[in-house]
Design a protein around this nucleic acid. Structure first.
Lengths: 144, 144
DNA sequence: TTATTTTAGTTGCTAAAGCAACTATTGCTA
DNA sequence: TAGCAATAGTTGCTTTAGCAACTAAAATAA
């Protein structure tokens, strides 16, 4: 691998792309008055998928810090989209679940998300997707 | 493009990879007591490259919000790594430059950064790099 | 020239990231 | 069983992201 290669700012490009996507998603949510942030959406999506899950597990599946999850959940509870329910077997644990309002929010926002994903991937093939996935996985696993 | 494809959480993978890289960089900076954050490094790198540049231009080349740049620069000025110098021709503009201490910081940290880039790219080829760049560029330009 | 618009930058606000320190449990071990 | 370690979660703190509102200066239009 050449020096030029190593000095290329790939990290920067990842960051720029992600910020652009994030910005687009947020602006779309706002334009449609979904009253939700991108990361709040990510948690809702995973709560819908996993039904009942603890802060810790939610942090793991979303690649978020548990403190961050704790605070986002706090906001979602205030919005009445999520309920916390203490475990009886292990009183340290708190199970999280979408409320009916939370499930409705998921179903309401999901079509927008699918549209935006389609937009982002326009002009790319399934092979491109596989390549991106492969490369990112290698990088991810290279990090100690 | 299939539905399965569109519903794949590519955004999430980008985010997870970037967070992992960022985390690794920060921990490495901390372990070597560089007293700097990843984004502060990014600004220093660009100030070294561009010599003399305004907040606005720096925001553009780093894909950062100008308010974010303004605040990071504030921290760098406090650390005496950067000086602000008002333009005489256009008194709205403020030129930014690394101090000697700032240049020294750049030279001090740069080898670490090169090492980390090498680590991240281990096992990948120049073609992989080109592919990643191509795909990210397409996505970037797909976003309205 | 005066009035309006555009540009450069800062400040206030909310949200998210992540470390450190803390409480409260539970599990382990001597 | 008592003591200690590990686990789950929250709170405090600093940093970054980005929108809105603001000041100040420059550019453009009337």
């Amino acid at each position: 691998m050449t020096d030029t290669f190593v000095s290329n700012p790939s990290f920067f490009k990842l960051d720029a792309t992600l910020k652009r996507i994030r910005n687009y998603w947020q602006k779309t949510f706002d334009a449609h008055k979904k009253d939700i942030t991108v990361d709040q959406w990510l948690l809702i999506e995973n709560l819908y998928k996993h039904k009942k899950i603890t802060h810790n597990e939610l942090a793991r599946v979303t690649s978020k810090d548990i403190t961050t999850v704790s605070r986002i959940i706090e906001l979602l509870v205030k919005k009445e989209l999520v309920i916390r329910e203490g475990s009886t077997h292990d009183r340290r644990k708190v199970f999280l679940q979408l409320t009916t309002k939370g499930s409705d929010k998921y179903k309401d926002v999901r079509p927008l998300v699918l549209e935006m994903r389609k937009t982002g991937w326009a002009g790319l093939t399934e092979n491109d997707y596989a390549e991106l996935t492969r490369i990112l996985d290698v990088i991810y696993n290279n990090i100690p």
